[in-house]
Design a protein around this nucleic acid. Structure first.
Lengths: 207, 207
DNA sequence: CGAAAAACTACCCAAAAGGGTAACATCTGG
DNA sequence: CCAGATGTTACCCTTTTGGGTAGTTTTTCG
């Protein structure tokens, strides 16, 4: 297994150094230590780490939160918050970014290491969850008017991004029929386009 | 919001009391304090808490791990490990149970509270996310020509089933611009409609 | 068997989406 | 500072989709 690269975002140099040493003692590689939001993003772009240790408060601002949001939407890697402030406001904002860990200073080597390990493992597991298949019974469960099997197979083709023509060809029916069926499903799903139907199907599969 | 019930599984009475006090100071309710695996399971069966604080080592054994496994397979509630031992073997076993948190003693009130909050929030989110979120870097990884951030936010709206008009309104740009952007993404994704793009995005997230 | 439901087809019109071209404004990095 | 990338808008035209109506065939089931 290759070594894990850790990006440290911490504006207090002494603490950053502390963390870095703890990391290296435990066979992690510190890919960089940065002190500002801008440098953090620079690092993420040019030298993507496997995980980020992120101080919430950088030079007085809560810009760690913004970095966290960016990591979630763009980079999809785990990150762990480090903070001296454990007040409710900070925590409230922080938790909405769904961090893999949250450590309140003072730091301990053991605490850092174990939190890192857990975060990496859990994140790896998370990405293994794949997209569920559509299930007719699951979908009908939450509809007043149930989708028929035929309609369902049309919906699956729409879900896979097929056009009416393609659907007509694979099902050996006319495009008129395809359109009719699809329109019927729109009534049942309470939607009005293919894309909204796809989103709706995803939603219905969740409960 | 109703109060959160916490089950404490900890065989050192002094520490258990410490934890319980910290919990109550932060408006959590302690549903029970138990000292053994058997009592823990008894509690889970009769009085299911919202979250469990779980010492790994109960009277010399690592039976905390077994409780964790039971929680995962049967109860599906979040749990947080608490341990004095942060050796690699313990950690290795612990991480496979995918705990929501892992705290090395000595405990601090702030550390406990924030870890609890994060664990509860993440666990709640987890069940809502059987479908993975789209992540830009993940998608670009497999494209010759990368999708820009702006284009990506458009794609997310398409993924949610929004029409060009809706997208234009939420992003405060003209529908012409929306159409232009979308067309550009079609080139990059090698698609030619919203529905095929949605399917493609799903596919790219799995590679 | 016979009625009801589901499936299939056609046609028409309207709305939305797709495709191409052109132009201008920012922004960013060398 | 300049070049290239990104974002913005407009215009025109084509194709695909959506929505409504109307009808026939096939299947299913009491």
């Amino acid at each position: 297994m290759s070594t894990i690269n850790v990006l440290i975002v911490e504006d207090e140099p002494l603490i950053a150094e502390d963390i870095a040493q703890a990391m290296e003692k435990n066979d992690f590689a510190v890919s960089a230590i940065v002190y500002s939001k801008e440098d953090a993003i620079e690092q993420l772009n040019t030298n993507l780490p496997d995980i980020v240790l992120l101080d919430i408060n950088l030079s007085g601002e809560m810009s760690g939160i913004e970095i966290a949001e960016k990591i979630n939407t763009v980079y999809n890697i785990p990150f762990i918050f480090i903070t001296s402030y454990s007040d409710k406001l900070t925590l409230e904002k922080a938790k909405h970014t769904e961090p893999s860990g949250y450590i309140v200073k003072p730091l301990t080597e053991a605490g850092l290491y174990s939190t890192l390990e857990i975060a990496l493992y859990n994140h790896a597991q998370k990405n293994k969850r794949k997209f569920p298949e559509l299930a007719l019974n699951k979908i009908n469960q939450h509809l007043n008017s149930p989708v028929s099997e035929r309609e369902f197979s049309l919906l699956q083709l729409i879900y896979d991004g097929k056009t009416n023509k393609q659907i007509a060809d694979t099902m050996f029916i006319s495009t008129n029929t395809v359109k009719k069926h699809i329109n019927n499903t729109y009534l049942k799903l309470d939607t009005s386009s293919r894309a909204t139907s796809i989103a709706r199907l995803r939603e219905l599969m969740l409960l």
